[in-house]
Amino acid sequence: MRFQLTADQRALRDGVRDVVARIFGRDALWDAVDGGGGLDRGWWRELGAAGFFSLRLSEAEGGVGLGVPEAVLVFEEAGRALLPGPLVATHLAAGVVPGAATGEVVVTAVGGGGLVEWLEEADVVVGEVRGAVALRSVDPLTPLHRVPGADPSAGLDDLFVLLTAAEQLGTAVRACEAAVQHARTREQFGRPVGAFQAVKHLCAELLVRVEVARAAVYAAAVTVDPVDIAAARLLADEAAVRGARDCLQVHGGMGFTWEADVHLCLKRAWVRAERGGSITESEDLLARELLIEAG
């Protein structure tokens, strides 16, 4: 993938955005929240039928035959829509776990620090979950368990981290779009709040973090290098978490209320940041690489 998407990549991104909006638009998002956050198997199978999970499988295996760069685009759109469920784990299980590619089977995995998402909804769990303890999740659409004493990096691989970073990028994009829209339409003292310098700065910083993270995530999708993926993970986490916080500031007090979407972006970003394990591991990997290059 070059930093200018090809026509096919743009068509893929737009098509995924349309599919996700159809099966999980804003109304469905809030229906899921109000309904207690259960996983809808109907639209999970629709994702499977659309090729979401089989994207990287060869056509001979019943897949789409695309690569990691295209998978990153797909997961960016999933993150932008706040699509719930163990999407990354099920995608990575396609071709290994029967039924995962078509969405008939839900697969979850033990993430960083022993964190397991959607354990009770999953048909297959990758990793040891004996003794898992239910947690009260900050995100109403990500039920969590934790496996005591689990290795912080257990169950993780580079592609797991990269696709999670792509989801974080998508959520950062959503927060940026929401902040800009609110700044344009919300008025104070007879002027859009976006006319005030402090709000302009927040929106500008949101956009900068999104574009820096996008460049890092897209580059890592091409190289699939562990160092590039570590950098992409750190930048995407920052763009998603700080972006959602700044979006809350742009919205003012209403951003913290349940009728606003903004707090859902922040909560999902917090959970995903923990899914990838300790950020110290990514920071240490980058530091070692810099020391090698400097030496």
Results as ranks from 00 to 15, higher is better:
31 D>N: 14
180 V>R: 15
12 L>F: 03
184 R>F: 06
103 G>V: 08
222 V>L: 12
155 G>E: 02
89 A>K: 02
265 C>V: 05
29 L>E: 08
136 R>N: 03
115 L>Y: 05
181 Q>K: 13
276 G>Q: 09
24 F>R: 05
122 A>V: 01
207 L>N: 02
11 A>I: 00
95 G>T: 09
217 V>T: 10
239 A>K: 08
118 W>H: 11
130 R>N: 07
295 G>C: 01
148 P>F: 10
123 D>E: 10
109 A>Y: 02
24 F>V: 05
120 E>N: 00
289 E>M: 04
293 E>N: 13
210 V>N: 02
4 Q>R: 14
256 F>E: 14
207 L>W: 09
263 H>C: 01
24 F>Q: 03
289 E>C: 03
23 I>M: 10
12 L>A: 04
57 L>T: 04
13 R>K: 15
150 A>P: 07
136 R>S: 12
203 C>A: 15
32 A>K: 10
146 R>F: 00
83 L>A: 02
271 V>L: 10
256 F>S: 13
137 S>A: 14
134 A>N: 01
48 G>F: 08
170 G>M: 12
71 A>V: 03
164 T>E: 06
268 R>K: 13
16 V>Q: 04
41 R>I: 07
263 H>E: 07
17 R>T: 00
141 L>W: 02
34 D>N: 15
251 H>W: 14
146 R>V: 15
82 L>W: 03
28 A>M: 07
193 V>N: 07
260 A>L: 02
39 L>K: 06
5 L>Y: 07
122 A>Y: 01
150 A>S: 15
172 A>R: 10
93 A>Y: 01
193 V>L: 14
215 A>C: 10
265 C>H: 13
192 P>E: 09
47 L>V: 11
279 I>A: 09
256 F>V: 12
152 P>Q: 04
